[in-house]
Write a protein that binds this DNA or RNA. Sequence first.
DNA 1: TTAAATACAGGACAGTTGTCCTGTTTTGTC
DNA 2: GACAAAACAGGACAACTGTCCTGTATTTAA
Lengths: 212, 212
Amino acid sequence: MAERPTSPHRRTNDPEGLRQRLVDTAYAAFTTRGYHSSALHELKRDAGVTGGALAHHFPTKRALGLAVIQDRVAEAVELTWIAPVRAAMTTAEGIQEVFATIISELERKGAVSGCPLNNLALELSREDEAFQAAIEAIFLRWRTAIADKLRADLRSDSIDDFDAEAMATLVVAAYSGAMAMAKASQSVAPLKICGEQLTSIIQNQTSQGHRA
Amino acid sequence: MAERPTSPHRRTNDPEGLRQRLVDTAYAAFTTRGYHSSALHELKRDAGVTGGALAHHFPTKRALGLAVIQDRVAEAVELTWIAPVRAAMTTAEGIQEVFATIISELERKGAVSGCPLNNLALELSREDEAFQAAIEAIFLRWRTAIADKLRADLRSDSIDDFDAEAMATLVVAAYSGAMAMAKASQSVAPLKICGEQLTSIIQNQTSQGHRA
DNA sequence: TTAAATACAGGACAGTTGTCCTGTTTTGTC
DNA sequence: GACAAAACAGGACAACTGTCCTGTATTTAA
């Protein structure tokens, strides 16, 4: 399996690499099969590390879970949501693009394992204060990024009674919930529908005044 | 603890009652602490039943989980969502009322344990086909009930390009996601915001034509 | 009344889990 | 090169989990 240079008992330490490999493996397991359903012996096998190495880097499973959230889940939200929305012309276009990307990726792999953040949020929020704080922080950054983009949309033709924070909250909630429904039905249909609905609503509300 | 009529070894069989007590206890545990985090010995203690009784009514934990979903979760969605929406004058009013009821109940108890259906959906959908089917069926009934009510709203002043199914999907998704965010932040704020946003959007789209 | 079926009691059991502990190897530092 | 610290190996261990099994009490049917 692993490369054996020449001598039978040769080892080369790579603490940083091993840690990354562990967190990567744990991220994949925790976000697909769940935190409690992923046994450490499976992670050790999949990552190719021994019990001693695991205990050295992460004294408890909880510490590993926390690292997964803070390192990988936060990064995933940044890469798949925040960055594309920021880079897009308008918020609506950004959201449309994000949904399209995620949908096509799910169709390619043929299974819906759900939103990593949402999966861990529902499983771990009430279990530990540190988990809750880490998850809440990611939700906040996500929401804030969308709200900022919405406010930027309004710079040109400013509309008074438009609450960017509220709309950003709706976007994040609708996406999270749509992904939950997609996971339950193992179909991307809820995502398609909610993506279209959200972009349509935002375009209406940001292009011109609405009610009242 | 339990009533002892007079003689020391007197027992009175109540299979139906015992079953209900078990499912109730399991529903409370599964929807707050989670399915995997709830050990059977805790359920036995809380419900006041022995291992033999449990095994007699539910041969496996999986069978108990399935009963919780089909009996209690489905009923909870019916009582807290479907019935109030059906009884309301309009869909928007119904949704507003549902959100208000849930929010005030959460504020009273001081903690957010999340939407029972959503909690179990994310934890169990990918674990078992029977779980997935049962959960998907509840989502479908929920969505359909809202869509029916939306179509009823339009009877008077019919609007052509209004997709009731799509809006119902958005409503369910937004609620589920908002509850997930509420659980992560242990605050009802996301629910308040999404409730207001949804009712506002629906009122706009059902009262008069929108874009195009 | 009797016999069979149902309902329940209570514990045994094997498998699994996360953690810890004792050694060995590698790496940095003087 | 010596030495301490870090990095890893590999297994022991106790606690816990779900399931099953044998026995007893209650209810039902005849």
